[in-house]
Design a binder for these strands. Structure first.
Length: 286
DNA sequence: CCCCAGGCAGTTA
DNA sequence: TAACTGCCTGGG
C-alpha cells in the first residue's frame, strides 16, 4: 500500500545534495529530478516541490516515522550550518554549495558491507555491485511496476560463497565481504554492541577487526551509520580539498593523514564529520 | 593502450 | 611505523 508524507517548508533538504555527497549507494535519480531508493524494506521516492519535500512509497511501517528517522529530520541543520559557517570562509563557501546536505541514518550492517566494497573503487561500480548482491540475495519489492531488492540480511548474504561474490564483480573484495559476513553471522551481538558503544577509539578498534575495514572505511561507518559526527573520513578528495584550502603543500601526497585529522579536529571540532560532507561535495562537484 | 577510482592487507626496511 | 606493492574491474 503506497503511503505519502509531505514535509512542509523544509529547511536544509536537497535530494541531489543528500544522495550525491557520497554517503549512500542505493538512490537513483529519476527523469523528474526526484530520487528513488531502498533502505530496509522501504522503497521511497523523494521529490522536492518548491519548499516542500514529498516522500512517497511503500513502507515497513508509518512513512512519516520512517522518513523522520532515516533523513534525520529532527536534527537542526540550519543551526549546524550557521555554526560551521562562522569557522572560516572556506567552509562557509562549501556549505552554501551543499546547503541541502543531511547525513542519513543508515543501517549499520549495510553500511559495513557497502564501504568494504567501496575500497579502491568508483561510485558507479560500487552501486552496480551492491545492486547485484541485493538482486541475488535480498528480497524483491515491487513498487510502481518496478522491481527493487532489499539489501540482504547477514544470514541471506552468508549463502554466498567467495566464488559467488567474485562472479558478482566484487574483485579482490570478495574474501573480505565473505569473512566479515561470517563474523557477523557467528556473532549475533556484534552489531548491537557496536551500536551501543559510544567511545570513538573503542569503536574504531572494533571496526578495524573486520577484514576489509581500514581507517577510512571505519570512519565512514561511524559517521554514516553510527552518528559519530566528529569523525573525519579522509579519502583522496578530502585530502585534496584540505591541502588546497589550508595546508598548501606542493606535493599533496606528502601530506600526512595525521596532519589532516588534527587540522580538522582543531578547526571543526565535534562537527568535523558534517564539515567533511560539505567539503567533499563541493570539491567533487564544483 | 594506459591509468585510475572515495583503500586494504601483507611484506620489507 | 613508514614505505611499498598487488589487487578485480570498468570506464575515460
Amino acid at each position: 500500500m503506497e503511503q505519502e508524507y509531505i514535509l512542509r517548508d523544509a529547511k536544509s533538504f536537497e535530494p541531489k545534495h543528500i544522495f550525491e555527497c557520497g554517503q549512500c549507494f542505493r538512490w537513483d535519480k529519476e527523469i523528474d529530478e526526484s530520487y528513488t531508493g531502498i533502505f530496509g524494506n522501504n522503497v521511497i521516492n523523494v521529490k522536492k516541490k518548491g519548499t516542500d519535500v514529498v516522500f512517497k512509497g511503500i513502507c515497513d511501517g508509518d512513512i512519516a516515522t520512517i522518513c523522520t528517522e532515516y533523513f534525520d529530520l529532527n536534527t537542526d541543520y540550519e543551526k549546524i550550518k550557521n555554526d560551521l559557517s562562522k569557522i572560516d570562509d572556506n567552509l562557509k563557501q562549501s556549505i552554501e554549495y551543499g546547503k541541502g546536505i543531511r547525513i542519513l541514518n543508515q543501517d549499520l550492517w549495510e553500511t559495513l558491507i557497502s564501504f568494504i566494497i567501496s575500497a579502491n573503487n568508483n561510485i558507479p561500480r560500487i552501486k552496480g555491485i551492491i545492486e547485484r548482491i541485493s538482486k541475488k540475495y535480498g528480497k524483491k519489492i515491487v513498487y510502481n511496476n518496478r522491481e527493487f531488492y532489499s539489501f540482504p540480511t547477514p544470514e541471506e548474504l552468508s549463502n554466498a560463497s567467495v566464488e559467488d561474490l567474485r562472479k558478482l564483480g566484487l574483485g579482490f573484495r570478495d574474501k573480505r565481504v565473505y569473512e566479515t559476513t561470517k563474523i557477523i553471522v557467528e556473532n549475533k551481538n556484534q552489531l548491537s554492541y557496536l551500536q551501543k558503544e559510544q567511545n570513538i577509539e573503542t569503536l574504531r578498534e572494533e571496526l578495524l577487526k573486520f577484514p576489509g575495514v581500514g581507517p577510512k572505511v571505519a570512519d565512514c561507518i561511524m559517521l554514516f551509520s553510527l552518528k559519530k559526527l566528529e569523525v573525519f573520513p579522509i579519502d583522496v578528495w578530502v585530502r585534496r580539498v584540505m591541502n588546497d584550502l589550508y595546508i598548501k603543500n606542493e606535493n599533496e601526497e606528502k601530506v600526512s593523514k595525521l596532519e589532516i585529522t588534527n587540522l580538522a579536529k582543531e578547526k571543526y571540532g565535534n562537527l568535523a564529520g558534517i564539515a567533511q560532507q560539505y567539503l567533499f561535495y563541493w570539491r567533487r562537484e564544483a
